[in-house]
Simulated assay, not measured.
Amino acid sequence: MLASNLPAFHRWFLAPRTAAPGVVLHGFPELPAGLAPAIARHLNEFDDDAAGRWTAFAPELIQAISETPTQRSLLGMDDGCKNCPPNSPCSRRKVLGALARRGHAVLDGLLAVEGCVDLTNVFRVSLGPAPADGKGLHLILRPELFSDRSLPSIIGDTYLEWSTTREMADTV
């Protein structure tokens, strides 16, 4: 599984970059299985400006990047915290933040939410009760009210509207 994920990471990394936002998903008690890759597929189909660069990052890949100095250096990351092991939550949180800064990344889980807390180029989605006070979230959904099949298009299409609105505000 990991060997097949690293080439996808390298293709994503080597693709031409624009100041593209990322998508971060938070779910309580958990996200529906396969949601992040389904959102990436939806965005690859309908986000014409992305040219197929949307990628969801599996936990195994986040772990591999976190544990491998050469992979971390590709993202411009140093060796990490001196007091934290390479695959600590702190290290993985930093990897998730670095992926989000590069854009066209669909990330999920609490570590992704924490790793992207200070980023403005992230579309934040909560599935289920919103964490904390819900500030900073762009979309809050109750997944039990939707089919798992419809969630990727709802999230992806709402992201596209948000992104278009941001671009229009930047040009005014």
Rank of each mutant, 00 (worst) to 15 (best):
P129S: 15
E45V: 00
W12F: 11
L6G: 02
L160D: 09
N44H: 03
V95N: 10
R11G: 09
C90Q: 12
F123P: 04
G76C: 12
L96D: 06
I154A: 06
C90Y: 08
E114P: 03
S91A: 15
D148H: 14
D108G: 01
G109E: 02
A15H: 10
R124K: 13
V122R: 09
P7N: 09
K135H: 06
E144D: 14
V23R: 00
E144P: 00
S73N: 05
L151F: 11
A15S: 15
G109Y: 02
G109A: 02
G52I: 03
K94I: 06
A98Y: 10
M1F: 12
D78V: 03
P89I: 11
L14D: 14
H42C: 06
N87A: 13
L6R: 13
L6T: 13
I39W: 01
D148G: 10
N121K: 13
S91D: 08
L31Y: 02
W12S: 04
V122P: 10
D79E: 09
D48Y: 00
G134C: 09
E161W: 02
A132N: 12
W162Q: 01
I62Q: 07
K94A: 13
A169E: 15
L110V: 14
E161F: 09
I154Q: 04
S66L: 05
S126D: 08
C81N: 11
R11E: 12
L99F: 05
T18N: 10
P32I: 00
N5R: 11
S126Y: 11
C81Y: 11
C81R: 13
M1S: 15
H42W: 15
R41E: 06
G52K: 05
C116L: 08
G34D: 02
L137C: 03
P152W: 01
M168Y: 02
G97L: 08
A8P: 04
I155S: 00
L107E: 01
N121C: 12
L74D: 11
A20I: 03
L6N: 04
V113D: 03
D78G: 15
V117A: 14
F13A: 10
A33K: 10
N83Y: 09
A8C: 10
P69W: 01
P86V: 08
H10S: 12
R149M: 04
E45W: 01
D108N: 01
T70C: 04
W162T: 00
R149W: 00
N5V: 04
G34Q: 00
V24C: 11
C116Y: 07
M77C: 06
L43E: 05
E161I: 10
A40N: 08
A169K: 13
G115S: 09
G134A: 12
